[in-house]
């Protein structure tokens, strides 16, 4: 049986891992290569690197970083941030990434998804969506934002996810801007709206603060994978604790080869 995945996310700025709160303030959370190795040792199922510098210079640093990580860490790596063309995607895949994640450029030019899927296969192409709940909307609606949450579009988040899947995206990372960095839990309504609308895997992102939040993203939000940053970076929980907790809730998880330990009492 296919397991559900836990994916630590590393926001990388100028080659260092940083953590934003609601897409802004930076806190240095360590060296990305060291963190990647630690997460692998703890049992992470996949790693995501977002280049939040996303300048031409930053992308060069990112290629080197991915190469360094890929020579030490042997689990799937996903890279996003500022990828604007299929050639940008190709550079990342060649340097050792398994998947590339596209956001603003793909919303402005959806053919980028199709081109990436045609050249590299759907399994390589992840569509990242940053969604903000429309204030006061009932039933709720969510609008897509670009450029790290700074630029509003007219795009509906659920419709954008459906269109992305039709164009050939293999997965969707769904990030709630409202919940991002709050540690108050994922936006489960947003998650469920998207997982009900598409048949490709959806990765929950933004808001994880407790192990119950991770569990709920799968059991209530129907996410295939959960992405989290700060709760792992700052060692609030280990990945192993998260996996043990989710497995105890009946969710199929990859536990080997890491020893199974009792769930933490910090849930």
């Amino acid at each position: 049986m296919l397991t559900r995945r836990i994916i630590p996310c590393l926001d990388v700025k100028n080659g260092r891992n940083v953590r934003g709160v609601r897409f802004s303030a930076d806190v240095d959370a360590g060296d990305p290569v060291e963190l990647a190795a630690r997460y692998d040792a703890e049992g992470a199922d996949e790693l995501v690197f977002y280049d939040i510098t996303a300048s031409a210079e930053g992308r060069g640093i990112m290629v080197e970083l991915v190469e360094r990580v890929a020579s030490q860490v042997f689990i799937p790596l996903s890279v996003g941030g500022g990828l604007r063309s299929a050639d940008d995607m190709h550079r990342m895949l060649r340097s050792g990434a398994e998947k590339v994640s596209v956001n603003s450029a793909a919303h402005l030019n959806p053919d980028l998804i199709r081109e990436g899927a045609d050249r590299f296969g759907s399994q390589c192409v992840v569509l990242s969506i940053d969604a903000l709940r429309d204030p006061g909307s009932d039933p709720p609606r969510w609008t897509v934002y670009l450029n790290g949450g700074r630029t509003r579009t007219e795009l509906d988040a659920v419709a954008t996810a459906q269109r992305g899947a039709e164009l050939g995206a293999g997965e969707i990372v769904l990030n709630s801007i409202d919940a991002d960095g709050t540690r108050d839990g994922y936006d489960l309504q947003l998650l469920r709206a998207v997982t009900d609308a598409v048949s490709i895997p959806v990765i929950a992102s933004g808001g994880a603060g407790t192990l119950a939040h991770l569990r709920d993203a799968v059991t209530i939000g129907h996410a295939h994978a959960v992405l989290a940053a700060s709760i792992f970076h700052f060692e609030v929980f280990s990945i192993q604790e998260a996996k043990t907790f989710m497995a105890a809730a009946g969710i199929p998880m990859r536990m080997d080869p890491y020893p199974q330990v009792p769930a933490a009492d910090r849930v």
Partner: peptide
């Protein structure tokens, strides 16, 4: 079945 079969399996 969702195809490709992608992820960790036993």
């Amino acid at each position: 079945l969702a195809v490709p079969h992608m992820g960790w399996n036993q």
